[in-house]
Amino acid sequence: MHMQSLTRAPRTQADRHTGRLMILPMLVVVSVFSLYPAVDSFLLSLHRWFLGLPSLGRPFVGLDNYREFLQDPIAHQALLVTAGFVLASTALELLLGLGIALVIHEHFVGRGGVRAAILVPWAIPTVVASQMWRFLANDQYGAINLVLFGDDIGAYVPWLADPWSAFGIIVLADVWKTSSFAALLILAGLQLIPDDLYDAARVDGATAWQRFWHLTLPLLKPALLTALLFRTIDAFRVFDLVFVMTQGGPGDATQVIQFYGYKTLFTEGRVGYGTTISVTVFVVILMLSFLYVRMVGSKLLERRAT
């Protein structure tokens, strides 16, 4: 008995039984509040259901809603806006995140304080950040105009009025809010790189740039990829920013797919079609998650196996 538990072979029957009991509550909660709803949503997306028109009933319509999705110009535009948002915000966040990570990885006086300051945007509720940026971008009282134009109020720009600049402000707000998160993921990668590699490079006479380009960056690739996927998936789910700042306007220029789904589902009461939109988003994200899990998820298991 003792010998068996000392080796890492399967433990006793009783142990396994306890183990199952230990994970059971977690599995139940996740199944009831995440898995079942996801399945339920998929089934709903196969029905036509208008909340305000009970006389139409709730007929099963097969893939009709998905066909409608393929032909819906508003949905296509929302997907395009979302893709643009994901690309722009993720790219900027990775660049900034890398910069921040390199800085806070260094040793200097007051590093703890600097790290905490950088975490502030991440800790602020997104709703607060959204109201804040809406105010910063205000055409009359906004700090952005104050910083750029000072007292020359004739030059003040209504940032949220123009489709492109409104989109830009949404991206900017997201970059401000989440770059520090990207930086933390990258920082974790930096910490895994042994210092003696750098010392060796210094001895060989490599410049700072060469050390970064030929040493840091290649070794950082896994961390960068993780941050990339994490941010991509998260950016796909953007909602609060648009809800608070623009309600999708002007001219649907900031209407991301999550917000469109929310509008159809909860304001218009088109339950079947709204659910179809959300399931489509879900499938895209699921595919990205699989990628992520393949890259990262099995590491814990690998290490246990060795």
Binding site: R11, P37, F239, T275, V279
Partner: peptide
């Protein structure tokens, strides 16, 4: 620690669940 069968799948599944968009579970919940 307990090396239950299916551990790997549960951990992978959890990562996927963490990525669920809220809107897809909001209606049924």
């Amino acid at each position: 620690r307990l090396r239950l069968p299916g551990t790997a799948w549960i951990l992978r599944g959890l990562l996927c669940v963490a990525m669920f968009p809220q809107i897809v579970i909001a209606g049924p919940v």
